[in-house]
C-alpha cells in the first residue's frame, strides 16, 4: 500500500507536476554542473555526477554560481531536456527568475530539509501554488 507524506514550503512558481525524484545534498547551477546536451550531471565533483536529470523531480540544497541558469532552464525545456521540477532548500533569485521565464515548476523554503524528506526514486507530487510537496512511497 502506498504511503503519502506531505511537506509545506513557500508558494512556488509554475504548474503542478508529478514525477520520480533525483536527490542529493549538493548545490545546483545549470552552467557549472550539467551537460545540457545529453541531460546528465557533468561536474565530476557533484554528488549526482553521471546521473540523468531529464524529466525528474530534481531535489538539491541551494543555488550556486552565476546567472546563466535563468536563460538555460527555458532552453532546456524547449528541447525536452529539463527536469520536471526543481526543489531547493533555499533559492537565489536566478533560479526563481529562470523558473518564471521557463514556466518550470519550482519551490523552496520548506518546513524541513527537503533533501532528507525526499529520497531518490520516490514518486513525488509538487503543487507550487499551494506550496505543497507530497511523497508517495
Amino acid at each position: 500500500m502506498t504511503e503519502q507524506t506531505t511537506i509545506k514550503g513557500h508558494r512556488g512558481i509554475g504548474e503542478s507536476v508529478t514525477g520520480i525524484a533525483l536527490v542529493a545534498e549538493d548545490n545546483f547551477s545549470a552552467r557549472y554542473d550539467l551537460d545540457r546536451v545529453n541531460g546528465v550531471f557533468s561536474r565530476p565533483a557533484h554528488a549526482l555526477f553521471g546521473e540523468n536529470y531529464v524529466g525528474r523531480i530534481l531535489v538539491l540544497n541551494t543555488a550556486k554560481g552565476g546567472v546563466a541558469t535563468s536563460w538555460m532552464l527555458r532552453e532546456m525545456k524547449s528541447r525536452g531536456m529539463a527536469p520536471a521540477a526543481l526543489l531547493l532548500n533555499i533559492s537565489n533569485p536566478i533560479m526563481a527568475q529562470g523558473a518564471a521565464f521557463a514556466g518550470l515548476c519550482f519551490m523552496d523554503r520548506f518546513d524541513g530539509d527537503i533533501t532528507s524528506f525526499v529520497r531518490t526514486g520516490d514518486r513525488v507530487a509538487v503543487d507550487p501554488e499551494a506550496g505543497r510537496v507530497t511523497v508517495m512511497r
Binding site: T69, S70, W71
Partner: peptide
C-alpha cells in the same frame, strides 16, 4: 542590486 539573470 540583486542578481538579475538575463530574462530578469
Amino acid at each position: 542590486s540583486n542578481f538579475e539573470g538575463g530574462p530578469a
